[in-house]
Design a protein around this nucleic acid. Structure first.
Lengths: 226, 226
DNA sequence: CCAGCTATTTATAATAT
DNA sequence: TATATTATAAATAGCTG
């Protein structure tokens, strides 16, 4: 996390991997301790070493055993009452995250279309665009045209003031496309829950369509050429 | 860790505590996941909720059970082979940290004496100082005198250059006294290990004398008035 | 209560010692 | 190899809506 951002993959260099392991293990155990103190909750962390060394345990072997006993007391299968509760909790959570994902996908779609609009202004042709792209692009252009026309009206009423600070450029600037990244992080902590599901169940949590029109009013907006 | 540094104690405000709990839990589980990926090790984290809610588990119930089974297989008492290994590992670690603590205590002692020297220059009397204080103070003053004399020699060889950037003030500036804080943090992760010890064992890990002369050459250096 | 936003604090990757 | 330092990336406390 410093000097350079590293990829989330096994660190090839063994020395560097051990260094990172020791540093991060320490950091995690410290954070465990802090969470336990700050929030007054029980917690335990167990991290195995690389070379068959004893695992690092926080807060204690006894504490870990206590947690272990709790899990032992649970039935083995996913039909357990606790498990169902957990499943219900996760279903709700997945629902919320899915909604958030949809929102962010729409935002991204709008930004993509805005960027596409600028490319068109610079001369890009439209032959490789799908009908959906063109429809959404039209909507973006319409919105911007409205904003521009409104701006023109305002300026015509105050003809001496040219070049104020509230130009369209500010409102139309392109930001980074981050929806997928954010949402995957949000889901990551719960990813284990779906590992055992069959593919159909797993996919049913999310939309199969990765491209949604960014407008809220239904699946298909008016075609480009009416 | 932001906007303000908070004390490491139970957060009184319940709302704030829950917010912190949720944020930090997410952060810890993310770090667990990263460590596992980056270093290719098994790890598991279990964090109980506040209101009897199901604990958050990473990476999975199955993974946690695996870890649990490992611990179940260990004998119950501290006489276990594994436990002895762990104890040995921790003994080594305590030894290292103790050495580090000594080093830092010496550093602090020197800084305290330097500060004391400045106070004396501003007129503080010496009646409430112990003989040990005075001895160490003398050593610090001697060192500084040597440095000053050396500096004078250098300056006498280049008499036209007055007021270079390498003044004594830079070398003698007082920094924060941080040894104890640093070392306590280092020990914190292992603190559970000594919790079960009786007081004698516990204290034997460290020196009973909290004030050490900062020089390496033995317990008592030459007295102030020979 | 939950999501998003900064100002800060922490954690840590790379480097130096 | 281990420890210390530094520059940078992440985490997060207190707010805001």
């Amino acid at each position: 996390m410093a000097r350079k951002k590293i990829k989330l993959a096994l660190i090839a260099n063994v020395t560097a991997r051990n260094n990172t392991f020791n540093k991060r293990k320490k950091g995690i155990m410290k954070k465990m301790s802090e969470l336990s103190t700050l929030c007054g909750v029980k917690a335990c962390g167990i991290i195995y070493g690389t070379n068959g060394a004893q695992p690092e345990v926080w807060p204690s072997l006894l504490g870990a055993r206590e947690v272990l006993n709790f899990f032992k007391s649970l039935p083995q299968m996913a039909k357990s009452k606790k498990m169902e509760n957990h499943a219900e909790y996760l279903s709700q959570r997945i629902g919320k995250v899915r909604d958030q994902l949809r929102r962010l996908q729409k935002e991204n779609r709008k930004k993509e279309m805005t960027m596409l609009m600028y490319e068109c202004l610079k001369g890009k042709d439209l032959y490789d665009l799908t009908m959906l792209d063109i429809t959404d692009l039209t909507n973006v252009i319409d919105e911007n045209m409205k904003a521009i026309n409104y701006r023109i009206e305002v300026l015509e009423q105050t003809p001496t003031q040219i070049g104020t600070s509230t130009t369209m450029a500010g409102a139309m600037s392109i930001e980074n496309n981050k929806a997928v990244q954010v949402d995957m992080n949000g889901l990551q902590a719960q990813a284990w829950f779906v590992q055992g599901m069959n593919p159909n169940e797993r996919m049913s949590c999310f939309d199969n369509k990765f491209v949604l029109p960014y407008l809220d009013n239904g699946a298909f907006t008016a075609p480009f050429f009416p």
